[in-house]
Structures are given as structure tokens and as C-alpha cells.
Write a protein that binds this DNA or RNA. Structure first.
Lengths: 201, 201
DNA sequence: GTAGATTATGTCAGTCCATGACAGATGACA
DNA sequence: TGTCATCTGTCATGGACTGACATAATCTAC
């Protein structure tokens, strides 16, 4: 990797970190692009060369996490039922974060706090999840061998499950991956309980 | 109702109609507040006295529809299971729209087209639905006698069901309540199929 | 290492969304 | 009719974003 590429990556991460710290400190709305840019010592115009909007920088960690999830999903064995594969991919993504760089984990947790505290950002995350849902649907349809209403429902149920799991996290659990994992497992277990056997086949 | 009050209501509806027509004609992003205000012959500043943001005017019909739904939900008999009550309330809300003023119906369908065509507005609608979900959860928890994870899941499943039903609408079905109704019924039937008996009790 | 091509960055000007302040217009009501 | 409350327009401002252009940094080939 050349110097230029490394420098860009560094600036990008610096912008995300500066933005998240400012958002947590003084709130998303009252933080200006000028402040974020000044903290990293770049011009405001440069900020917009890295991120298309103020919202995008707040959602960058979530976006990255979703990419990790999708990559995990593609690695799941084809024998697993759709929902099992989705749940396992989620566990895999969380495990990667847990065993990875502490800085990445911190960044992810900070971003989650910002998302949770800011309605407009929360809506943006929903948009991300729905965009992702299309790619998840492809995988579900592939495993079930049918791109129909039922595949859509399986996919939407997974999205709901993740969402409800996250929503139940208390403030302290938001800064702790273990707590988040437990909430997710509880919700996965409930789905197993309420669905008819092979509902996702 | 006094003249002043009637005039305000008239201006509000005129702003919504003008905005929706412009959004459909030239797209949401490329429509300016100035254009909307000019079409109704008020100052741009006045627009913001009726709507807090450009997004709000696009979501006004959706907001009204959700209020109707909640009111229907409260009217459902207490003997119905939570999910049944939710589905029936939805049917009731659609029926009200079908049998009501043709203009209201047209406005609702136009707004749905704009929502469907504009990602940022779509995200906004998600935010609306999630805000509503809290009030729906109260009703579900009341009927089940427990404000727990399961009540949350029932509520989230309902939201997903509505969303999937709407998503499946083709472009022509978006301008036709009957088509939308059929999609919703298909999705309700699927839920009945995939869930264990009394899953929502 | 130097020249020339690429690409990143800063500066500047401009548009649009959104909000506060104030003054004038209009409906409400005794 | 006169007074009061409320609505509206005008003006000024700040902050998000974008296009255009010049400068500076990196890369590539020699």
C-alpha cells in the first residue's frame, strides 16, 4: 500500500474519531463540520471529499460492520437453514469485533451510542439496514430456492430481531459487547420459540 | 370553526398538495421550499410555520394515517389477541380511507409514491413507524399483560409485516388501494402460517 | 533524482434549508 | 369601532453541501 493510500485511510479514521468524540461531547446537532475539520486540521471542503454528509461519518462504523456481517454470511455453509445462517453470521461478526483491534471496538461502541442518542441518525441506520436487507434477501432466496414473499418475511424477521435485541440494551450495555451479545441471544431464542418448525426453509 | 382556523387548514392542505405535485413532477431533492411557497402564494417563512422541515410536508399524510390507525386500534375489542387487533385496526384504517373523501385518498397515494421514490423520505417514514411502535407496544403489552421481550417481538413483527406488504406493491398498485389491501392480506396470512398457535398471547 | 502525470487539498463563491427578530396585516371579540 | 391576539412577510443569519479552479503532494517512468 502506497503512502498516499495510507494517508487517506488515516485521515478518514481521524475524521470519524474526531466526529464521534464531538458528537458524544456536545451532541450531533450542535456539532458543525467546521469543528470536525478543525480537530483533524483539514479544510471543511476536504471533509466532504471523505464523507458525503454529516450523517455519513456518524454511520461509517455501522456501515463497516454491515459489510463484515455480509462477508460472514457468505462464508456460512450452505447446509444451514436461512435464519440459522443469518444468526451465525451475526455471531461471527460480533466475535470478529471482540477479538479485533480494541480501537475498532471502541469506535463501534461510540458510534452505537451516537446512533441511539440521535433520532435522525437512528433513522439513517434504519435506511442502511433496509439497503442491506436486499442483499440479505438474495442470500435467503438462494438458500430457500425461492425469491418469494416468504423469503422476504424471513429476512424482515431477522432485521426485526436484531433491532429488538439492540433496542433492549441499557446505556451501560451499549459500551459492552458481552451485554449486547446476551440480548441478541435472548431474542434469537424467542424466535425459535414462536416460529413453527422449518419456518425458514 | 372560525374563519382564521379554516384559512389555516386550507393553507396547510394547499401546501401539502402543491409539495406532493412538485415532488412527483421534478423529484423531492430538486424541489425547493421557495417553489412550494410560490405555488401556494405564501412566503417561504410561512411554509416553516406550518411544517418544521421539507421532509415533514412529504410525511404529513403518513403521519395522519398513523393517527387514524392508532385510533382504530384503541377501538378494537379487548378479547382479540394482540396481533389480530393490530391487523384489524389496519384493515379499519384502510377502509376509512377507501370510503372517505376521494381527495384524501389521492393525497395519501401520492405521498406513498413520493416516499417510495425517495430514500431519505423512506428513512423518515421508518422513523415515524418506530416512534409509533412505542405506542403500539403499550397496547400489545396491555393486551398480553406483560411488557416484555415477547411483546416487543409481536410489535416488531407487525411493523415488519406492514413494511413487507407495502414493499411488494408494484408501481400501479401504489396508486390503487385495492392492490395494496391484497398485498397486506397475503402477508397477514403468511404470518398466521409461520407462527406457532397463540404466539401473540 | 528529475520531469511529467495523477491525485489530494485549500480557497472561494454560491445554493438551499432552517431559524430568530421585528413590523405590518388580518381575523377575533367586547 | 377599537383593542387584542394571531398570522404573515421581510430581513438577516448560520450551517450543510457543491462546483470550479489553483496549489501542493504523491506516484511513475526514465
Amino acid at each position: 500500500m502506497g503512502l498516499r493510500e495510507r494517508k487517506k485511510l488515516k485521515t478518514r479514521v481521524a475524521l470519524i474519531d474526531a466526529a464521534l468524540d464531538l458528537f458524544l461531547e456536545q451532541g450531533y446537532e450542535s456539532t458543525t463540520i467546521d469543528q470536525i475539520a478543525a480537530a483533524v486540521d483539514v479544510s471543511p471542503r476536504t471533509f466532504f471529499r471523505y464523507f458525503g454528509s454529516k450523517e455519513e461519518v456518524a454511520l461509517a462504523p455501522a456501515t463497516d460492520a454491515q459489510d463484515v456481517f455480509l462477508s460472514e454470511l457468505h462464508d456460512r455453509p450452505g447446509t444451514e437453514s436461512p435464519f440459522t445462517a443469518l444468526a451465525q453470521a451475526m455471531r461471527g461478526a460480533v466475535a470478529l469485533l471482540r477479538d479485533g483491534e480494541p480501537e475498532d471496538k471502541q469506535r463501534f461502541l461510540k458510534a452505537r451510542q451516537v446512533v441511539e442518542a440521535t433520532p435522525t441518525i437512528f433513522a439513517g441506520q434504519m435506511r442502511l439496514m433496509l439497503a442491506n436487507e436486499r442483499r440479505i434477501l438474495e442470500e435467503v432466496a438462494r438458500r430457500r430456492g425461492a425469491d418469494d414473499l416468504r423469503s422476504q418475511f424471513v429476512t424482515a424477521t431477522f432485521t426485526s430481531t436484531i433491532r429488538v435485541g439492540f433496542e433492549n440494551c441499557t446505556v451501560e450495555e451499549l459500551s459492552d459487547l458481552e451485554g449486547m451479545t446476551k440480548r441478541l441471544e435472548d431474542t434469537f431464542a424467542l424466535v425459535d420459540d414462536l416460529m413453527t418448525p422449518d419456518w425458514d426453509r
